[in-house]
Design a protein around this nucleic acid. Structure first.
Length: 155
DNA sequence: GCCAACGTTGGC
DNA sequence: GCCAACGTTGGC
């Protein structure tokens, strides 16, 4: 199986690339995803070793901040049956979990942060899901060409 | 804070 | 299965 590439959104006020890099083992479980399409990508398609662009959303300058790697493949998101969690979903139980997560590990920050405004100007990136009008998908596939262009040419 | 676009829910 | 109403995302 060849390596795949992804983009995952996070709100830096809640959890930023620096938070990831300062975690013990630089690893974090990606809990709280409550969208079926994003869940399916994590549950079915994300494999250990896949590379991830970390995107900062809902902030002053949205954009791509760094690179992470999938280190643990999908397993049930326990926050979904935790009554005290903000991510609690009564339809998800330990016996029949509805939501899943993966673990990712910090790889590096981009040398230069890539703001959304800049990404929009790059012809090679015009087909990125991120840049499609109305796209809100928080976990999305990225092509190898897009990934390499972003990490090698732009940063 | 606004609002367009999208996703989900639930009555029928 | 349709679709109106509501909730959420996320750029601006």
């Amino acid at each position: 199986m060849t390596k795949k590439y992804w983009l995952m959104k996070t709100e830096p006020d809640t959890f930023s690339i620096d938070d990831l890099s300062s975690r013990p083992n630089k690893t974090e479980c990606w809990d709280g995803v409550r969208n079926y399409q994003a869940r399916n990508f994590m549950r079915d398609d994300m494999k250990k070793g896949d590379l991830v662009l970390l995107y900062h959303s809902s902030c002053k300058v949205p954009g791509i901040a760094g690179i992470a790697q999938v280190v643990k493949e999908s397993y049930p998101d326990h926050t979904s049956w935790d009554h005290k969690s903000a991510y609690y979903d009564p339809k998800s139980t330990e016996e029949t979990p509805r939501w899943f997560m993966v673990d990712i590990k910090f790889k590096k920050k981009l040398k230069t942060y890539l703001p959304l405004t800049k990404l929009k100007e790059i012809p090679q990136l015009k087909d990125m899901i991120l840049l499609k009008k109305g796209s809100r998908l928080s976990i999305q596939p990225v092509t190898q060409e897009e990934f390499e262009f972003i990490t090698q040419e732009l940063s």
